[in-house]
Amino acid sequence: MDLKLEVVVVPVSDVDRAKDFYIEQLGFRLDADFRVEDGYRIVQATPPGSECSIIFGDGMTPTAPGTYQGLHLIVTDIEAARAELSARGVAVSEPFRDATGAFHRAGAAKRVPGLHPERLSYGSFASFEDPDGNQWFLQEISQRAPGR
């Protein structure tokens, strides 16, 4: 049985502001914008190259806006991705890695400034937030681990 992650619902406070950020600043593809009825609006957007989309809108989730932490966008070159997003007006952190070389921890604990010294896949990160404070990470993966 295949199980594919298709959509992640992201809690936002202002749908039009979020739409501008995700479409105009991040360059996500706008898949849908349905105003179903008063208080119920569905906006679906997909990151370039991704098979998984995000949905946000009015009446979509009881989760408080800005509470999502740890959404990841995978890039093959984190420096190029940071430069492009910065040029689009997105405030992206400097690259960092975990002191252990493994996946980053919550918060800034054991965070070391700079790229992974050998630029190993899965080891370098940068972060940014959407207008509500939902936290996203860029993770550099230039070569996937076997079976992925």
Rank of each mutant, 00 (worst) to 15 (best):
V43R: 04
K19W: 01
M1G: 15
P117A: 07
E79T: 12
E129G: 09
G123C: 12
L85T: 08
R111M: 13
P65N: 06
I54T: 02
E51F: 11
D38Q: 12
L71S: 07
G27A: 02
I23Q: 10
A109E: 13
T61F: 11
H116T: 03
L138P: 14
G49W: 04
R88K: 12
H72F: 13
V12W: 01
L120K: 15
P95W: 05
R144M: 14
L85A: 07
S13M: 02
G49I: 09
P47W: 05
A45V: 13
V9K: 08
T46C: 05
I55F: 12
L115E: 09
F34C: 04
G27N: 00
E37T: 15
R97A: 03
G89Y: 09
R29F: 04
G107L: 07
R148M: 14
V15D: 00
T63V: 15
A81M: 05
S127Q: 07
E140G: 09
I78E: 06
E24S: 15
I54Q: 08
E118K: 13
V15Y: 06
E24T: 15
G27F: 00
S50T: 03
P48K: 11
R35F: 02
K110P: 02
G70Q: 03
M1S: 14
T76A: 12
R119I: 02
